[in-house]
């Protein structure tokens, strides 16, 4: 920032504008460890009671939080893994190989990427029921992966496009076959893209709510987002502090990932600059 430009007015403006969000976050955290009388803003007492769900299943949610967390990890992890491994190969094919229907395929990928997925949900529901994958984690993983893939393929194609052809030509002239060239010479150039895509699809699956809710609503394949919904399903006795505690628990991995990998995540917008 240059010195002939006063920064404090901007800082002040931004501070005032973001105050509501800060307050909401503050209350989210405070409320998970305190009790407050209804209607009051000041907490009455400190308590860890709302975090009890970590050790015993609460009455309303009925499932063990750790099993649900494991489900969520499985869901997000597998989605991320499949998206990355399919995108890394199909992105290369679209970027480099002279294959039939390449134009059509690219157009299709772009269209699917822009397509509002919610409109497909009834058709997907029927298909899962027919194939017997309804109410299973595998079913949701497959659907989520399919919906994430257009984005992944498109992003990876963009990263491959920035790798100079000459590197591949040099590899071929050096005696390496096409596969070795891809694995040893091209793949290392798109690593930032891969890392970013992996994280993005993990986070996207982690926060997915609609798909698990509609396609796998039952206990065994619950994920954290649907678990939270179950917590406040019974609107006669809503325990909002418990809800907030689980919410914070649910958000923790996401925040951790953002803190550790925010540099890598920015890469996806840079379109794969080489470093």
């Amino acid at each position: 920032m240059t010195s002939n430009f006063k920064t404090w007015p901007v800082t002040l403006l931004l501070a005032v504008l973001s105050l509501p969000i800060v307050i909401m976050f503050a209350y989210l955290i405070v409320d998970t460890v305190t009790d407050t009388t209804a209607g009051s803003l000041i907490p009455d007492r400190f308590t860890l009671e709302h975090w009890r769900f970590l050790f015993e299943p609460p009455q309303t949610g009925r499932a063990d939080i750790w099993a649900v967390t494991l489900n969520t990890f499985l869901f997000a992890g597998s989605t991320s893994l499949i998206v990355v491994s399919v995108s890394v190969t199909s992105g290369y094919a679209l970027s480099r190989l002279n294959m039939p229907f390449r134009k059509f395929f690219l157009g299709g990928v772009l269209t699917l990427h822009a397509f509002p997925t919610v409109t497909l949900i009834i058709a997907i529901f029927l298909m899962l029921q027919m194939t017997g994958l309804y109410n299973t984690l595998i079913g949701v993983i497959l659907v989520k992966t399919a919906l994430e893939l257009p984005f992944g393929i498109w992003i990876m194609k963009g990263f491959y496009d920035t790798v100079p052809w000459e590197i591949e030509m040099a590899g071929i002239a050096d005696g390496a076959d096409r596969f070795t060239v891809w694995r040893k010479l091209v793949l290392p150039q798109v690593h930032p893209g891969l890392a970013a895509l992996g994280l993005f699809s993990f986070l996207s699956a982690w926060s997915e709510f609609i798909l698990p809710q509609v396609l796998a609503p039952d206990g065994a394949s619950q994920v954290l987002s649907t678990y939270m919904q179950n917590l406040i399903k019974d609107d006669r006795a809503p325990d909002f502090n418990l809800f907030k505690s689980v919410g914070l628990f649910y958000a923790l991995p996401v925040m951790t990932i953002y803190l550790i990998f925010n540099q890598k995540l920015m890469n996806i917008y840079g379109g794969g600059t080489k470093g």
Partner: peptide, 19 residues
């Protein structure tokens, strides 16, 4: 095929493997 021809090529942008 190129791989078995035993040719050495120097490209305009050198095409060194950056990693």
């Amino acid at each position: 095929p190129s791989q078995n021809r035993n040719v050495g090529v120097v490209f305009q942008n050198y095409a060194l493997y950056p990693h």
